[in-house]
Design a protein around this nucleic acid. Sequence first.
DNA 1: CGGATATTGTACCGGACGGTACAATGAGTC
DNA 2: GACTCATTGTACCGTCCGGTACAATATCCG
Lengths: 189, 189
Amino acid sequence: MRRIAPERDQLLAIVAEVFREHGYEGASLTLIGEATGLGKGSLYHFFPGGKEEMARAVIDNIDGWFEENVFAPLRDSADPGAGIEQMLGATDSYFRSGRRVCLVGAFALDESRDLFAGQIRDYFGRWVTHLADALVRSGHGLAEATELAEETIAAIQGALTLARASDDTGVFSRALRRTRTRLGIPPSD
Amino acid sequence: MRRIAPERDQLLAIVAEVFREHGYEGASLTLIGEATGLGKGSLYHFFPGGKEEMARAVIDNIDGWFEENVFAPLRDSADPGAGIEQMLGATDSYFRSGRRVCLVGAFALDESRDLFAGQIRDYFGRWVTHLADALVRSGHGLAEATELAEETIAAIQGALTLARASDDTGVFSRALRRTRTRLGIPPSD
DNA sequence: CGGATATTGTACCGGACGGTACAATGAGTC
DNA sequence: GACTCATTGTACCGTCCGGTACAATATCCG
């Protein structure tokens, strides 16, 4: 019986960082090898499908993290407002207040989208849906909740782009603060 | 005396499209050659600095287009509201209602940002500044106008990401509609 | 121990990459 | 026509790309 190695998460996190910083095309196997300390032999042992499988596993891993730390609070919190606040906190810490970029968002922009279209659509779709659900449960109408949710996720993604473009994490913090206000969450600081 | 070839704009537009679709790394000289119908000889004749100079020229060209069609109306329109409406119209048509991606935004996300950091910061900085100016002239306080401007550009960028991720141009249209409402511009349709 | 299986390092593959060299062609000018 | 200079096609460069092959080594388990 084989154990599921817990280091796999750590490995995927490192690979994710390479994809995040260099994009799908820019993340060469050499870079991935250097970052992980693994040679091609090992890399292809863990990911026989090569680079594409690595990226797919990375997206799945990110998706799982969001499922657990972002979507679950939205879905399961008795108080939808508290769930939304948990989501915003998790989002802020995940993106390191805008110092980190959204890998899925970056993949969505260039041609690598074609390879991972399903996973990308899923990730954003579930984020919007779960947030909209929470908003409905906190009293909004369905149509308004859906628009508000879509607006929120777009605001986060846009703030990441702008924060990185201007090299100013303030952009991201301000975007999150505005989001809290708009969604009726009491400001955290 | 040499004429400034008017075809240069057209050439840059084609090269821009390749960068837009494939990203900086993904846009190979072969792809650029095929799209433009030019061999390497011609390409390196027009851009002795190679791919990097091509990208720089493309960003400059885009910047020029925005200067003329987006920033100028914001700056020069007697009625700031009309200027903002012109900016939104130009933005919608430039991004083809979300079918097209923002090249500068895409460059901002991956490592190619390091090469073009100045140009990227400039592009977004001027966009935000000019919009904030117009908002001040239409009666907002400076602080509020700045936040509103930053929020607007982030909303546009995020909507582009989301539209592309979900393959749904409705995302972009809805974002523009919300922006009009938030900025106090009467809806156009 | 032994044997099986998981993991690794290394050498190698064909092809594409960005870039260069340069001779041939084109077009405008006197 | 002859000179000039812009433009182009082509062949080539060294390097890195993603991927494969495979033998050597760990690791686990009986």
